[in-house]
Nucleic acid binder design. Structure first.
Length: 269
DNA sequence: CCTAGACCCTGTACGC
DNA sequence: TGCGTACAGGGTCTAG
């Protein structure tokens, strides 16, 4: 589910409820997520939250003794509840705050993670990640240089976290449509101008989606329970067989590494 | 190094 | 109504 815009939307939603408050304790109802929930989280007691940050698709809660690293996986979401309410089936983790509010983590598929790291620079999950797409490090020069010699189709290439983080299945298809580049083009076949356009487009698409609160397809919700509204602006994702919003040609789909890719065979070259 | 595939898990949509 | 199949926003691991 959550790509960078959805994780950033979650970060912005939870930050004002956490920073300045204390975690009284955590309630872990099911510790069997992508990896077992770290023992340090299970045994948390009375810790202030110093900051709420994001790296790639990971949320980072800064505590005095270390960091809670949260990943939403495919189906995870976070809600801020005004008070303790009875948990539903897939409500696996609560953080009980000193304000009485509850940060509740729901994740039907349990591909997400709740990990503890005393020192982020030593964190396995954060090591070897590529640049943030909205940072200056993700530039035309960078993307073009990285593309040289790469035969991989550009779509799955963009989803490689070592190249750039945060671009998942939705935004890879959407960005390539807006940039007018076919998803099957080999990365090494991009011209410098195309790489530059792609960088600019990825940033613009991600920023626009963040403005809209992300994309809700099925289970993603903003932390106040509202859906993300970028779904209404999707150009190609999930629209196989429907007319292109620009030229009217039927949107086509192909598979790359078991993931669906959508594109317009006329607008993209 | 690169690339493709299987796999983790549950829910939902669809064809019969 | 039921059953079997395919598919779903991510990431890791293995094999070639």
């Amino acid at each position: 589910m959550p790509e960078l815009p959805e994780v950033e939307t979650s970060r912005r939603g939870i930050e004002p409820h956490l920073v300045g408050a204390r975690i009284v304790h955590a309630i872990v109802r099911n510790e069997r997520l992508r990896w077992p929930v770290s023992q340090e989280i299970i045994s948390l007691s009375d810790q202030p939250v110093l900051s709420v940050q994001r790296r790639a698709k990971y949320l980072l809660l800064e505590l005095p003794a270390g960091w809670i690293i949260i990943h939403l996986g495919m189906s995870g979401s976070l809600r801020v509840l005004p008070e303790a309410l009875p948990p539903a089936k897939h409500d696996h983790v609560d953080l009980v705050m000193s304000t009485g509010k509850i940060l509740r983590y729901t994740d039907p598929r349990r591909f997400g993670a709740w990990l503890w790291s005393r020192d982020l620079t030593a964190s396995n999950v954060l090591a070897h990640l590529g640049p943030e797409p909205l940072s200056e490090a993700f530039s035309a020069d960078y993307l073009f240089a990285k593309s040289r010699g790469r035969r991989t189709p550009v779509k799955p290439w963009l989803m490689d976290n070592k190249l750039v983080v945060g671009v998942g299945n939705i935004y890879a298809s959407e960005s390539l449509f807006v940039a007018g580049i076919l998803p099957d083009r080999a990365a090494m076949a991009l011209s410098y101008e195309e790489a530059a356009l792609l960088v600019k487009t990825i940033k613009a698409v991600l920023l626009r989606s963040i403005e809209q609160g992300g994309t809700t397809l099925r289970d993603f919700l903003q932390t106040d329970g509202k859906p993300g509204y970028f779904a209404q602006e999707l150009q190609v994702y999930g629209r196989g067989g429907e007319p292109c919003r620009v030229c009217g040609a039927p949107i086509e789909s192909v598979k790359h590494a078991q993931r669906s890719t959508f594109f317009c065979p006329v607008c993209q070259k």
